Amino acid sequence: DWEDIVRFLRKLFELGEEVVIGDWHNHHREEIKRLIEWLEKHF
């Protein structure tokens, strides 16, 4: 279910905002944000 995936990604992203998950999070933050925005537009 796409909504569950979007919710999971958003939760992960919000957690990442508070607890910076090292370089991985910083590197992928923009991609995650773009992916969430893309999914919201399409689903």
Rank of each mutant, 00 (worst) to 15 (best):
R7A: 07
I21A: 11
L9C: 02
L12R: 00
E30H: 08
L9T: 00
N26E: 11
W24P: 05
R29T: 09
E31M: 14
W24I: 10
W38R: 05
I36E: 01
D1M: 13
I32D: 00
E3R: 13
V19A: 09
H27M: 11
E17F: 15
W2R: 01
E14I: 07
N26A: 13
D1A: 11
L12A: 01
R29K: 10
E37D: 09
H27R: 04
K11T: 10
F43D: 03
E17A: 15
E18S: 13
N26L: 04
V20G: 10
E30L: 09
V19N: 05
R7H: 06
F13I: 08
L9I: 07
E17K: 14
E3C: 09
E31S: 13
E30F: 04
R10A: 09
H28R: 10
L39D: 00
E31V: 13
R10V: 10
R10Q: 13
L9H: 00
L35E: 00
E18C: 03
F8S: 06
W24H: 07
R29C: 08
F13E: 01
V6S: 02
R34G: 04
F13N: 00
L39C: 02
I32E: 00
V20Y: 08
H42T: 07
L35R: 00
H25V: 12
F43T: 03
I36V: 09
E18P: 06
I36F: 14
L35N: 01
E17N: 13
L15A: 05
E40H: 13
D4P: 07
E37K: 07
K11H: 07
G16L: 15
I32H: 02
W38H: 03
E17M: 15
K33Y: 06
V19Y: 03
I5P: 00
I21N: 12
E18R: 13
H28D: 06
E17Y: 15
I32F: 08
K33F: 11
H27L: 11
L35Y: 02
H42A: 09
H42Q: 07
H25E: 10
E30N: 07
D1S: 13
W38C: 04
E37L: 08
D4H: 10
K11V: 08
I36N: 01
D1P: 14
W2S: 01
V19H: 09
I32C: 07
G22Q: 04
L35F: 14
F8N: 06
G22K: 08
R29M: 08
G22I: 08
R7I: 06
E30Y: 02
H25C: 10
L35V: 06
L12D: 00
V20T: 09
K33I: 13
D4Y: 13
L39R: 00
F43S: 02
I36K: 02
K41L: 05
W2T: 01
R34S: 10
H42M: 14
E40S: 11
R7L: 04
K41R: 10
E14A: 10
V6N: 03
K33V: 07
F43E: 02
I21V: 08
E30C: 09
